[in-house]
């Protein structure tokens, strides 16, 4: 009975699907046959192939011409469907919102309000905490937004005065947003371990890293190579840290050198480690992407204003022309 079922099932299968190439080849005694079919795969047009298509007994599947990879890809590019509105995971990195577009809804959508379990809190964060929900602290988003805007002003001001901003995010997955933010703000990035002593012992650690001299429009100036050789290494003018918990050494060095710091402070982090805390969830990549993007955008605006000022006034290191009442640079900034 079982045998009969087998024949019924497999017989149907065998009738539906044509004989597969693999076992036909095992019955084939000619050796050269397979080589010919292999050649057809790579070269598109083969006269032998077209000529022998009449006898369908031998190899019915491989005789049909396969398009080349390039033409198949081109066809796919032309024929693929266009997607409607959908979630793009990297939109926050590639097209970050500017500080004025930050809303509480956006912050909540990017999980900025989620803190840590109540037992892990640092009491210094009390003023940033809205309440407790299911055993975790909820960060007050209006304070987050206010602190984020304040930090954005700081970044913008530093960039406007030609300062060097360092974006740091050393956790897994934070590299892209940190690099993008640094690119926008014209600053530096760090997405791997901070080498302890890079500020306090800079000559030993960053001594071989190259520097350059630029003018007020950021064009490189030639002829300073000799002076750059025995010059002390650079220090950042502002450090923005996405995960202060892992970067205590960095923040401590900044404190020793009087470098202001901005940090994303979760409910388990100490807000006194940084100069300008932003109370938010540092464990959510989406939240970190948002904050880094907003600060990067602020830096971009600062750089733009600095260049506009240079173009309007000639150069940045000039007092304002309040006496003469010349406010052309103001209008240039406002535009």
């Amino acid at each position: 009975m079982i045998l009969r079922q087998l024949v019924i099932r497999q017989g149907q299968r065998a009738l539906i699907f044509p004989a597969s190439q693999r076992w036909i080849r095992s019955l084939n005694t000619e050796i050269g046959k397979t080589d010919v079919t292999q050649k057809n795969k790579t070269h598109e047009v083969d006269l032998d192939c077209i000529g022998s298509q009449t006898d369908a007994s031998a190899t019915p599947i491989e005789k049909t011409e396969e398009p080349s990879v390039a033409s198949a890809y081109k066809t796919w590019l032309n024929q693929r469907s266009t997607l409607g509105p959908h979630y793009e995971p990297h939109a926050l990195v590639n097209r970050p919102p500017s500080p004025k577009d930050v809303t509480l809804e956006l912050l909540m959508a990017s999980q900025a309000h989620l803190g840590h379990a109540t037992s892990l809190w640092k009491p210094q964060n009390q003023r940033y905490i809205f309440g407790i929900h299911q055993g975790i602290h909820i960060i007050s988003l209006d304070i987050t937004a206010a602190h984020l805007r304040r930090a954005a002003k700081v970044v913008e001001g530093v960039c406007e005065r030609g300062g060097l901003v360092l974006f740091v995010g050393t956790r897994e997955g934070q590299d892209r947003c940190v690099v993008n933010a640094a690119k926008l703000a014209g600053g530096c990035h760090l997405f791997e371990r901070w080498i302890p002593g890079s500020i306090t012992n800079g000559q030993q650690i960053l001594g071989k890293c190259k520097m350059k001299v630029v003018d007020d429009l950021d064009n490189e100036l030639e002829g300073y190579e000799e002076q750059l050789i025995d010059r002390p290494t650079l220090k950042p003018d502002l450090v923005i840290c996405m995960n202060p918990l892992e970067n205590y050494v960095l923040l401590h060095e900044c404190g020793l050198n009087g470098i202001p710091t901005i940090g994303v402070i979760d409910t388990d982090a100490d807000p006194t480690w940084v100069t300008y805390p932003i109370p938010a969830n540092d464990d959510s990549l989406r939240c970190v992407n948002l904050i880094a993007g907003v600060l990067g955008k602020a830096g971009e605006e600062g750089q733009r204003r600095r260049r506009a000022m240079v173009l309007a006034r000639g150069y940045t290191n000039q007092p304002s022309d309040e006496k003469t009442g010349d406010t052309s640079h103001r209008s240039a900034i406002a535009s």
């Binding site: 030609g162 060097l164 360092l166 690099v179 640094a182 690119k183 600053g187 530096c188 990035h189 760090l190 791997e192 901070w194 080498i195 890079s198 650690i205 960053l206 890293c209 190259k210 520097m211 350059k212 001299v213 630029v214 003018d215 007020d216 950021d218 100036l221 300073y224 750059l228 010059r231 650079l234 950042p236 150069y315 940045t316 290191n317």
Partner: peptide, 26 residues
Amino acid sequence: IPRYARVVPASPSYFTGKPDFTDNLL
């Protein structure tokens, strides 16, 4: 003579300590 000049890192990966490698990777 330029009227304004400032020293900046040659690469945005200056503070990684391995700027050329980091730039290559990126």
